[in-house]
Structures are given as C-alpha cells and as structure tokens.
Design a protein around this nucleic acid. Structure first.
Lengths: 253, 253
DNA sequence: TTATATTTGTCCGTATGTATA
DNA sequence: CTATACATACGGACAAATATA
C-alpha cells in the first residue's frame, strides 16, 4: 500500500482563529500598527477559551503578523507577513507552472553561488564538495540513489560562499526540488545515462570552483542547471545570465 | 524626535522554548518523524507550565517544523522548516554582518531580474516602471521622500519577469531593506546628490529594459546595486556576476 | 508623581476526545 | 474491550508591565 500523505485537518480551534485574524490583516480590516482586540474580547467573540486565543496569537507572532507587548496589547506589524518567504507547499506536485518559476529562481541563485564559491572557498569547503562528489561517483558506479549526495554537493557550494543567508536559501530551494532528482538517480536514470551526465556537470563545477575560476564555475553551473531544467521539460531560452562575447554564442548549446 | 524602533525582547518563555526545540531539530537531535517529548515532560524539563509549552508548539506548527496528532503526540515534519524561508528578523538593525549577506542575496536576484525583464516585459510592465520613475523624478525635484516609488520601481521590474515566485521574493527582499533607503531619500541624501544619483541608475535600467537589452539591463542593475551597497558600507569586490569580455574590464568602476 | 484599572504573561486544576498497547 | 497515555480545551487565579486619570 502506497504511503498516503496525512491530511492536515483544519479542525484546530487555534488555527481557525489565527487564520481568521490573518485574513482580517490581509483584507486591511486590521491595518499595520492597529491594536488587536484584547484576548478577553477575542475569546468572548469566538466563543473559545483565552488559551486558544493565546495559541492563535503565538502563531501570528511566529509568522511575523503581530507583535504583543505585555500590559499594552497585540499590534499588527508594520509589514505583516513579510518576515518570511513562502513558496507553494507543493512545488513538485500538481502545478507545473509554479515549478517552472521556482526552478528559474533556483537557477539564478545557484549559478551566482558557484561564482562566489570559486572566489571565497576554503579548504574545508573543497573537502566537503569532494566528499559529496565521491559519494555520487559511488552511486553512479553502483546504480544507486545519489540524490542525497547531490543535494549535499549543492549545499556545500552554498556554504563555500560564506554567506549564510544564501546558504539557507539554496538549502530551502534544494529541498523543494528534492523529489525532482528522482528521474536522474532512478534505475531508468542510470540506464539512460542521466546520472553520469549530471555527475560530469558536478565535476566541471568542482574543478572550476577549486581553480578559483568564477566565470567558469558560473558557466558550468549554468549548463548543469539547464540540463536539469530540460529533464523537467522547462524552457530555458531566456537563461543566459552573462553578457556573452559574440564569438561564444555558437559554442553554447 | 526620530522614530525609535521598538526593541523586540526575547524574554518570552514560549519563544525561548520554541527556539530551543527548533535548534534541536536543526542540529539533528530531533530527526524528521521523531516524536517530541510530551507536553508534560517538556513543561517539567523547562520548568514552565504546559500553557507555555503549548504556545511554543503552536509556533513550531505555524512554521512547519512539527505536526501534532491528538492522542499520539507531536512529530517532527519530514522537511522541517523548509516550507518557508526566513531571514534574520532585524535586517536593518543591530546585525551588520547579516545585512551584508542579505544584501548580497538581493543583489543576485535583482540583477538577474533586470536581465529577464529586458527579455519578457510587456507594455503594461513598462508603463508601471515609467510611472514609478516619474514619481521618483518628482521626489528628486521636490527633495521629497521617494522610498515608496523606489520600492515600486523594483517590484515593477520583478513583475516584468513574468515569474511570480521571483516577484514575490524580490518584494520580500525589498521590504527587508525598506528602511535602508532612508539615507538616499532623506534631506541629507538629496543635498549630497544621492537621490539624483540613484534616480540616474534607475533611468539607465529602464532604458536598457525597454530596449530589450538584457546584458545592458543586468549591468545597469549591477551598478545601481553596487552604489547602494557602498552607501551601506558593504564590500562589493566579489560582485561581478558576468564573465566580462576583457576589453570591458577597464570601463567598469 | 501617585494611584488605579487594563492587558498580557504565567501557572494550576480539570474534563474530554483520541490513539495506542 | 479495557486501560493508559496524550493532545485538546476550558476556567480560574495571580504576577508583571502598561496605560490612564
């Protein structure tokens, strides 16, 4: 029997309350800076206990919608909801258009990260990349699953940029596409040579980064991402990140 | 009296508890699928009431770290925290290192967006940019605050990429730095010519985008972002996104 | 400045529905 | 089927911070 994703029941009082207030904020009923009704009032209006209201407000605080001050009240934040960036929960499902858009965003940051990694990498960074590369080599040789090592390799590059914000964003994006690596590392992927091709791209990226060649690393990453995008059926004609010198145009795929 | 940003105190028991558990998950102490200690146990261990623990878990649920089932317990999600991307809460305050990192991420996506906008823009997109430009022109002429129009201009470029994910991310990043535009559009900024200089950069970006010149738009955006970064005291020496043709090197600042 | 009322923060006890052994 | 464990929810209470008169 296949694994059934457990449905998230909305039948949680505190969640219902928090979503309702969130909607009030989104609709402008509660403008930034405005004071929320008191917990006592809210509990009376919703017909729930004060504990439920407090849990709902905890959610809103965690998501950056409100901030509360003891003795004063809870207030709508100046830029409600802008504290966190959320993608559609189901990138790899249902909505192919959304996947294209998210992948393009991933392409942008991954190519830039490769260039920065070429300039800023340390010895431990290279060792981490090399270790992930070796695990993928083994996976290619054994026709095994190298998806995790694949992910680790990209995260290692991100770490080599020395920019934790960039690193966390790439990790975030990578996890969104973790499932999409299956066609590469599946049995069919090995048979069709997709795993070996991907690994060759990784190798080119690593060599350019290790050599400190920022432009080469960016181009290797670009080719690698374009190939991955095409496996997902994504149009990549607008993806030339660099002002290419004219004579290079023909050399590109 | 200038507007003083109200400090966010971490002295909230439920926040301390949720951050601690979040760290456990990040460190792998609590792996995906693992059951959290019961509320009773947690309240005993932390020395707080169950209400505090419940509020902490509400936060974790809102952020996608855990899911709880009545009668069973709370469990770490399969990809904890990867449902949303969060930056340090105080980008424009306190932590200058974090600001540098976030600004670099912004630089990456803004330059790429300018290039994509040059290729994909529609007539309404151009009209929207032109409108924001005119508002900034008026602000420059009147020594008024053009921060909102500035933000709108960058969002209009993002919209012209036709990529809603990229658009939302740029909007998200822009809001993080909204306060940082003050030195440009303040009275001192006008007097020092910073507003006029920024506006000249906007104009160059617009012209390249309108002409469909992707490389030019990228370079104009790059210069604009580098200038903004330098106003914030950020080192930009690693920021040449493109494999430049050799003869172009000297022409760059 | 002082005093008082309001509001959030925290704690405790209890009851109920659900999951699991 | 029964018993236990657990999350969910309720109510009352006090402390601490804030706002107001």
């Amino acid at each position: 029997m296949p694994q059934i994703a457990r449905l998230t029941r909305p039948s949680q009082l505190s969640e219902t309350v928090s979503k309702t207030i969130e909607q009030w904020i989104a609709d402008g009923v509660l403008a930034p800076g405005v004071k929320l009704p008191t917990e006592k009032t809210l509990s009376a209006e919703f017909g729930v206990s004060r504990a439920v209201v407090r849990e709902a407000i905890s959610r809103l605080k965690a998501e950056g919608y409100v901030a509360s001050r003891q003795g004063a009240g809870a207030f709508v934040e100046a830029r409600p909801g802008q504290a966190s960036f959320r993608l559609a929960d189901d990138v790899d499902a249902a909505d192919p258009a959304a996947m294209v858009h998210v992948f393009e965003l991933r392409y942008i940051v991954e190519t830039a990260a490769a260039a920065l990694a070429a300039r800023r990498h340390s010895a431990p960074d290279l060792a981490r990349m090399r270790e992930a590369l070796q695990r993928m080599d083994q996976a290619v040789a054994a026709c095994a699953d190298g998806a995790q090592a694949d992910d680790d390799f990209h995260v290692a590059i991100a770490a080599a940029t020395g920019n934790p914000a960039l690193q966390r964003f790439i990790r975030f994006m990578g996890h969104q596409f973790f499932d999409s690596r299956v066609p590469t590392w599946s049995a069919q992927g090995h048979a069709a040579g997709r795993a070996a091709a991907a690994q060759a791209g990784h190798q080119r990226m690593f060599e350019a980064i290790a050599a400190g060649d920022a432009a080469g690393a960016r181009e290797a990453a670009r080719q690698h991402m374009v190939e991955a995008a095409r496996r997902l059926g994504i149009d990549t004609k607008d993806w030339d990140p660099a002002p290419q010198a004219p004579w290079e145009e023909e050399a590109l795929p």
